[in-house]
Design a protein around this nucleic acid. Structure first.
Lengths: 199, 199
DNA sequence: TCCTTTTTTGAGTGATCGTTCAAATACGAT
DNA sequence: ATCGTATTTGAACGATCACTCAAAAAAGGA
């Protein structure tokens, strides 16, 4: 046999997420990537194919991480709705624990607003990931309704989209350097808006 | 005297807004700008100084236009709150009239999420423009409260931030290719949320 | 230890980036 | 018409872009 690869694919992807989430797609050069992943062009292109290929994998890695975080909060909550409110409020926290986040805004939304028609593949990838998140929210709301937490006339898909839009807005708003208490008040307003739909 | 400039500065800026709003800052090259404004490098640099200088002026032009549109809707409404609800719903419309918009998302938010720390001047410019919009919303709400449209216990600055965040989220969400009826339902949900604060 | 196979390296590719500037051009005053 | 001045033009700058590939390096099997 022969030489084995010296890098860890998942570690490299995590670095790529950090870098792209922070700098966006177009403003991240291969030089940045080489330094952040500690890999040289040959290895990078052999492994990920292209800059956009790496970005695509980073998007999926980000989505997987975000999904885990949501599941974690949902699991640790007494009810579905409480979990969703807690999830909303989590985006107003400075940063849970010691790890610093590269940007307040969601990487998916940053990509959705940044990437233009020439990179249609990335656009549609983001679109389908967001659709998946929307569906997960909808399923959580269905579960809440089945548990009697929500009024029976609530349209779950519609409320799911409202919820997703609230999160998008909150995280984009947080990209500004706004006082922490204003941010928590904003998240509280959104969380209490959920109570409107309660049974 | 001597030769007079052959281009109209405001027309050029409008083209720049259209171009930058559509393609973003980093993905717009000077070649794109030369073609869109029909100007050659010498004239461009003599007039606007640099790519970032042109972008800065385009941002201001965009903000002025957006302010006018808001004022127009506010003027044509029976009450302040009705005007705000109408304003919210306007972002769910396909496009009012014949003019096509280059992007659904707000150019200010696209810029806020795209531009990174190396271009701090643009970032802080966006930040102050957004703060100005927030204040305008707050003033409108104060006016509504004075007219008895809002409960007396409503914190107008806080509600203004909530409103701005709703708009941000709605317009970013609309960047996806989502069915029109879903979008109007979303805007309706946000508009009716305003009723919660009514007197 | 040596050989085979795979990975890693980094110089180099042409293209494009934002920007400059001297020459050509055209307008207004005389 | 001629001149003086400001504008317009487009070639060219060095830097950087995403990407390629031949050579060097290193791991596992013999």
């Amino acid at each position: 046999m022969a030489r084995t690869a010296s890098f860890d694919r998942q570690v490299a992807l995590d670095s790529a997420v950090e870098l792209f989430w922070s700098r966006g797609y177009y403003a991240t050069s291969m030089k940045h990537i080489e330094k952040a992943l500690d890999m040289r062009p040959g290895s990078l292109y052999a492994t990920f194919g292209s800059k956009s290929g790496l970005f695509a994998e980073a998007l999926d890695a980000y989505a997987a991480r975000a999904g885990n975080e949501f599941a974690l909060i949902a699991e640790g909550s007494s009810s579905v709705i409480e979990g969703l409110k807690c999830y909303l409020r989590s985006f107003a926290m400075p940063c849970s624990g010691e790890t610093q986040v590269p940007a307040q805004a969601c990487m998916l939304i940053k990509t959705l607003l940044e990437v233009n028609a020439e990179d249609a593949a990335l656009r549609s990838q983001v679109d389908s990931i967001l659709a998946g998140i929307e569906q997960r929210l909808c399923e959580a709301l269905n579960q809440a309704k089945a548990a009697g937490e929500l009024r029976t006339d609530v349209e779950c898909p519609r409320l799911a989209r409202l919820l997703q839009t609230q999160i998008i807005g909150l995280r984009a708003f947080a990209e500004r350097n706004v006082p922490k208490d204003q941010l928590t008040a904003l998240a509280d307003d959104m969380a209490s808006m959920l109570d409107t739909y309660r049974a």
